[in-house]
Design a protein around this nucleic acid. Structure first.
Length: 308
DNA sequence: GGAATAACCTGGATGC
DNA sequence: TGCATCCAGGTTATTC
């Protein structure tokens, strides 16, 4: 989604902001009026991502030219690294690129009308059925390691709301050694640790199940029981799964999971365990099992992912 | 302090 | 056909 959005929004001026449903601003410190006012007239400088968080840093306002209603929810911009629109899609959020004046989308929550120097007038729609996703204006803070904050930015900064999120497993600055130490210090089940975004980001329920299958690890294996070698293998499989999913445009089961043009990804056709309860394991032929996991499900092969 | 659970929502699928 | 129930790709506050 970041890759699809970037060419259309980087360098674009935000002409108008319309908050249709204020529940989309649950992570925004102010109200809808302050959100709309603070963004109107600003120019988007980048489109960056860490794990499942996406942010769009804003160019600083030209001296003497204040955007409408200059107050914002973050720190004083003159004292900070600047501000960014930060978004999370939650379970069902979408960011859609549409022509200017496009009719309302179903579950539309926020609309940004933008003017791009090359592509002209466009509309970015944030739609979200379950309203777990959100947009916010946030201030940027330095990264502790001095490396770029995420994909799509060279700046060593992230929105404050993203600062506690670990680097993405595919991030060049990701520390394998720290990951291994952290994982092996946890008594929780390895799947729970993989889903802990403060340990590694970008891994959700689908990709956790798929990576554990590839690494032949039972999802309920205590993380502390894993050898350093097993953790290294697991991290390699996490990366393989994420790289493949990114290349195939993500995992679409229905119309909720689409790219900025409303197109579905293909990774669902590459799944080995997720959503395949009762079907045969692609590796050994055993029947895939589904077990409850914190209000959701874990899928695994009982033969090639045995509990130790 | 770490780990587990509940809560936040809507809508599609399924069963009665 | 209508209603109730379950389930869904996430994060975070609360409880244990």
């Amino acid at each position: 989604m970041r890759a699809g959005l970037a060419p259309a929004v980087v360098g674009a001026r935000i002409a108008q902001v319309t908050v249709v449903d204020e529940r989309a601003l649950t992570r925004h410190a102010g109200d809808a009026v302050s959100f709309e006012a603070a963004l109107t007239g600003r120019t988007i400088a980048e489109a960056a991502r860490r794990g499942k968080f996406l942010w769009m840093p804003l160019q600083r306002p030209v001296a003497g030219v204040q955007p409408d209603g200059a107050s914002d929810a973050g720190a004083s911009e003159s004292e900070s690294l600047g501000n960014a629109i930060v978004g999370h899609l939650g379970m069902s959020g979408q960011l859609l690129l549409r022509p200017a004046g496009a009719p309302p989308e179903r579950h539309e929550r926020v609309r940004l009308d933008i003017e791009h120097p090359v592509h002209g007038e466009l509309t970015v729609v944030f739609a979200d059925q379950r309203t777990f996703g959100s947009l916010a204006l946030d201030h940027l803070v330095p990264t502790p390691d001095g490396a770029p904050g995420g994909w799509g930015t060279d700046a060593a900064a992230t929105p404050s709301q993203v600062a506690h999120i670990a680097r993405d497993a595919l991030d060049p600055a990701f520390s394998d050694a720290r990951f291994s130490r952290t994982v092996r210090a946890k008594r929780s089940a390895i799947k729970r640790v993989l889903l802990d975004q403060t340990v590694v980001s970008g891994v959700g329920n689908i990709y956790a199940d798929e990576a554990l299958w590839a690494a032949r690890l039972h999802p309920e294996t205590p993380a502390a029981d894993l050898s350093a070698r097993a953790v290294t293998r697991l991290l390699a499989e996490v990366r393989t799964v994420l790289e493949k999913a990114l290349a195939e445009g993500g995992t679409s089961f229905d119309a909720q999971y689409v790219n900025v043009n409303g197109q579905a990804g293909y990774f669902s056709q590459s799944l080995h365990v997720y959503g395949r309860e009762g079907e045969q394991c692609h590796r050994c032929g055993a029947v895939i099992k589904r077990i409850p996991f914190g209000g959701r499900s874990s899928h695994f092969c009982p033969r090639c992912q045995r509990r130790h």
